[in-house]
Nucleic acid binder design. Structure first.
Length: 279
DNA sequence: CATATGTCCTGAGAGC
DNA sequence: TGCTCTCAGGACATAT
């Protein structure tokens, strides 16, 4: 499930298409039902043909191709989407193909593959991007300042773990990294936001940076279902460094007698150490 | 306004 | 073996 580190790895992996022009967009012959693509593939092809990829950007968990006129192709992988420059994990769930070329470089294809098909692909004008993406998302988790994070949450009664998943508060943290972040911060995920001291907000903020940067350095997490791959179809390595996620009943790596617990918050699994994560 | 719930989807794993 | 059932999770729409 691509969260910020996986999406950042995807973006870095497709950086080589910056400066290339789009020769065409189509949907590879594939038995799967199309995922959300706006506008439809034919219109997308007409609008994007000959456009130069000016930049690859990331905002939260979205991959963004920016063009010269500031239009943006916004790709949300959600649960199982990938962007690839090589052959996908299977030919069964290919959703979109973007053919690119440049004078001095070999032609290439950017593929969007999505096993579950919950992801979305949208071409937005600069104004649409502003209203539909930029304004709806909180600051990116790698950029947000400690005081801004606290300002946004100090008055709410929501549990800290649930609040960190809210993309309108801070963008990029999902279920896996929320658990890892709160372990590093030493905070019980059930703690109400309005009961956290300023010092503990500082710890949450530091843990966000530390965990996400470490995960990016390891190219994200590929879970046991094997879905997540980088742009070259290689798995990440951070799953080997998880301290709590999917480790229920295993010993805590930090405190002597702690065991990792699994509870459910907002219909999602939460993993934490009952020994050293404090309310 | 703040918060909670239902929905989309596929494949893995459990249980019979 | 092979069927049916449940579950996982991100973001959005809808309900309270």
């Amino acid at each position: 499930m691509p969260e910020l580190p996986e999406v950042e790895t995807m973006c870095r992996g497709i950086g080589s298409i910056v400066g290339m022009r789009i020769d065409g967009v189509d949907r590879p012959s594939c038995p799967c039902r199309p995922c959300v693509i706006e506008p439809d593939v034919t219109t997308l092809d007409q609008r994007l043909r000959h456009q130069l990829v000016a930049a690859i950007e990331r905002r939260g968990k979205r991959v963004i191709l920016r063009f010269e006129d500031d239009a943006r192709l916004v790709i949300e992988p959600r649960m199982s989407g990938l962007v690839l420059l090589t052959d996908p994990p299977s030919n069964e769930h290919l959703r979109l193909r973007i053919r690119l070329s440049a004078d001095s470089r070999p032609a290439t294809e950017l593929l969007v593959w999505d096993r579950r098909g919950l992801g979305t692909i949208r071409l937005l004008t600069a104004a649409e991007f502003e209203s539909r993406v930029d304004q709806r998302l909180g600051p990116d988790a790698l950029v947000i300042e400690a005081e801004r994070l606290r300002e946004r949450l100090k008055a709410t009664a929501r549990p800290i773990k649930v609040a960190l998943l809210d993309q309108s508060v801070v963008a990029g943290i999902g279920n896996l990294y929320a658990a890892e972040i709160l372990f590093v911060a030493g905070i019980d995920p059930r703690t109400r936001c309005d009961r956290l001291s300023r010092a503990r907000w500082e710890r949450v903020h530091m843990a966000i940076k530390e965990v996400l940067e470490e995960a990016i350095a390891n190219e994200g997490s590929t879970l046991s279902d094997g879905t997540y791959r980088n742009a070259l179809n290689n798995p990440g390595g951070y799953q080997n460094l998880h301290r709590v996620y999917d480790r229920q009943d295993q010993p805590c790596v930090r405190c002597p007698n702690g065991r990792i617990r699994r509870i459910v918050q907002a219909q999602r699994s939460t993993f934490f150490c009952g020994g050293c994560q404090k309310r």
